[in-house]
Design a protein around this nucleic acid. Structure first.
Length: 258
DNA sequence: ATGGCCAATTTTATTGGA
């Protein structure tokens, strides 16, 4: 038995965040790290600092927007970039890898801008495509789907549920789309440990939301049954959201005993 | 009720984020 921690963290630009990321990894030494919004081309990705910290690195990058990466202390197998039905030039929002028998799928879900916007329709369509992709995963094995889902599950994930009712990140069609993705057997790992409201993973820069703890829980760790069996906890590192030049998302860590 | 901040590129504005 050994501990494997899987971190999901929307870093909001890997290059702008590098000092914070390096310090955090050096402090916590997690085994697997899934990054979203790396915001750089593959050739611009800062491989060296991660390799010096002892990580194998797989990336699926894109200039300016999107971009995802998986870091791991153990080597990665069967790295898959994007989704099978991605067209040429599709957003770089998905990467998967197998590490130590754990199939890790890292996603950066479309934001959607606002309900009714063309980007909202794109979000729902994209989620439908993700659902079909997830169906191809072997849920009898240990599957962990993590990332920035840009969707809350329910009122407990929202600092002011009435204000957000039906709005982007909280609308029923988004939540239904997420439920459909989970239908093959995925569970929101955090909710197997606590029913508490007020656990957030993102706070708006613009409203200085972190100062008043006005946040949303939109970054999730979803586990197949056999992964959930060995999951021992899920933690949001709010400390990392404070200080100088943080991302607007906090890292979320799921611990496994495998 | 509204605006606010941050990062990258198109850079002294614009776009996107959530």
């Amino acid at each position: 038995m050994s501990a494997v921690r899987v971190v999901t963290w929307n870093v909001n630009s890997v290059r702008a965040r590098m000092p914070r990321i390096e310090a955090w990894l050096a402090q916590h030494k997690p085994e697997i790290v899934c990054l979203q919004e790396t915001k750089c081309r593959d050739e611009e990705f800062p491989h060296e600092p991660f390799e010096k910290l002892g990580y194998h690195v797989s990336i699926h990058g894109q200039r300016t927007y999107n971009g995802v990466a998986i870091l791991s202390r153990e080597p990665q197998e069967d790295v898959a970039k994007g989704m099978p039905d991605d067209e040429d030039g599709a957003d770089a929002r998905v990467i998967a890898a197998t590490v130590g028998g754990l199939r890790v799928l890292n996603v950066y879900v479309v934001n959607g801008k606002e309900v009714g916007d063309v980007k909202y329709a794109y979000k729902l369509d994209w989620l439908e495509r993700l659902s079909r992709y997830v169906e191809t995963f072997d849920m009898a094995g240990r599957v962990v789907l993590v990332g920035d889902f840009n969707i809350t599950f329910d009122d407990r994930d929202v600092y002011d549920p009435e204000r957000w009712r039906g709005k982007i990140l909280c609308s029923e069609p988004e939540r239904s789309a997420l439920a459909k993705i989970m239908e093959p057997g995925l569970t929101d790992a955090l909710r197997t440990f606590t029913e508490d409201a007020g656990i957030y993973t993102w706070w708006d820069f613009r409203t200085r939301g972190f100062l008043r703890d006005r946040g949303l829980r939109i970054d999730h760790v979803l586990c197949s049954p056999s992964a959930l069996e060995v999951c021992t906890g899920v933690d949001v590192d709010k400390v990392e959201r404070g200080g100088e030049k943080p991302s607007d998302h906090a890292p979320v860590t799921a611990a496994f005993e495998v």
